[in-house]
């Protein structure tokens, strides 16, 4: 497996690009790339040439997260002011504006069926689930307080939730927090299951393997990527190699490899059978905040694509084969 650079857009935004996701192909168009930036906009790009399709304004602070509905027509973006804007990808019409104070909004993910939007709730130590038809809050999954930490450890009693990930069957939801623990929920029963231990620094990104509903990958500030058996509570493997924080992780549609982006300015490709880094892309000149594999589907999409975004205001597109 290997990555080949296709195109990079310098100054794709006016400021740091913090979020990236693919809106899957619809009947009328191929997949689109959505990016969110500190410049308070969300931009829509046509692949493979990365032609700017549209610039969505409407946020008042930096856009920290973007998520796209699996059907490709709807997307959500959120900024540091904790508003979520749900919009039509093709028309940019606002569908809903969500907020659930006092919860903040960090990472967002639609579930594989597209009926729920999960939102990492920051300091509220919970994940909010929104119904995607009514846009109403249907559940709040709270992380129970951990027993017995030191009484002085004021933040330890609360988990600050940064990231969320859905299992491919949509039954499990994992969320990563500032203190490094990962919590796993049973979504249908709205129940907390257990913690996954191993990181002691913020877990900013999580992703489940598309084929194995038990296999979860986590990216942490400690510079490592962990592989967990999310059901068995076991750490299956560790992959180290980044020189600084690992900010984002995504798994390839074939499930054979993962890509990570790091503060060390590199994007790495990891072979999951070897559990080793097989390629390092260093075309970015600042922290890489997002990596996203293009979902399969649509026409002539046998070839894979990976997009990465960075603090250097640029977007890069790679061929994955």
């Amino acid at each position: 497996m290997k990555l080949g650079g296709i195109k990079s857009v310098e100054n794709a935004h006016d400021d740091s690009v913090w979020a990236v996701t693919w809106a899957p192909a619809t009947a009328t168009r191929p997949p689109l790339l959505l990016t969110g930036s500190l410049d308070e906009t969300v931009r829509v790009w046509k692949s493979d040439e990365l032609i700017l399709e549209r610039t969505n304004t409407g946020h008042c602070l930096g856009v920290a997260s973007v998520a796209a509905h699996p059907l490709g027509s709807i997307a959500a973006s959120s900024s540091l002011d904790s508003f979520i804007r749900v919009f039509d990808v093709d028309s940019n019409a606002t569908i809903a504006t969500l907020e659930a104070p006092p919860s903040e909004v960090w990472q967002m993910r639609f579930d594989p069926k597209g009926s729920i939007l999960a939102v990492a709730g920051g300091g509220s130590a919970s994940v909010n689930l929104w119904d995607t038809s009514t846009w109403e809050l249907i559940a709040t999954l709270s992380i129970p307080r951990v027993e017995g930490p030191k009484p002085t450890d004021k933040s330890g009693s609360k988990k600050f939730v940064l990231s969320v990930a859905w299992s491919p069957d949509g039954k499990r939801l994992a969320c990563g927090s500032m203190d490094g623990t990962i919590s796993v929920f049973d979504v249908p029963r709205a129940k907390f299951l257990h913690h996954l231990e191993g990181h002691f620094m913020p877990v900013r990104s999580l992703v489940y393997s598309p084929y194995d509903p038990r296999l979860l990958f986590s990216a942490s500030d400690d510079g490592n990527v962990h592989m967990y058996d999310a059901e068995g509570k076991a750490l299956v493997g560790t992959m180290s190699g980044h020189a600084s924080w690992v900010l984002c992780v995504d798994v390839s549609p074939d499930g054979a490899s993962i890509a990570t982006g790091s503060s060390d300015r590199t994007v790495r490709l990891w072979d999951l059978t070897m559990r080793a880094s097989v390629q390092t892309m260093s075309n970015h000149t600042d922290q890489v905040w997002g990596v996203a594999f293009r979902p399969p589907g649509g026409n002539d999409l046998r070839t894979g694509r990976l997009a990465s975004v960075s603090d250097d205001k640029s977007i890069s597109l790679y061929d994955y084969s």
């Binding site: 008042c60 602070l61 006092p102 903040e104 509220s124």
Partner: peptide, 22 residues
């Protein structure tokens, strides 16, 4: 005006958060 609105929002969020946390 936009800045002030943001500020208001941030402060009110903090205010709400401080109900939750110390």
């Amino acid at each position: 005006v936009a800045g002030l609105q943001n500020a208001v929002r941030i402060f009110s969020q903090l205010s709400a958060a401080s109900n939750l946390h110390i």
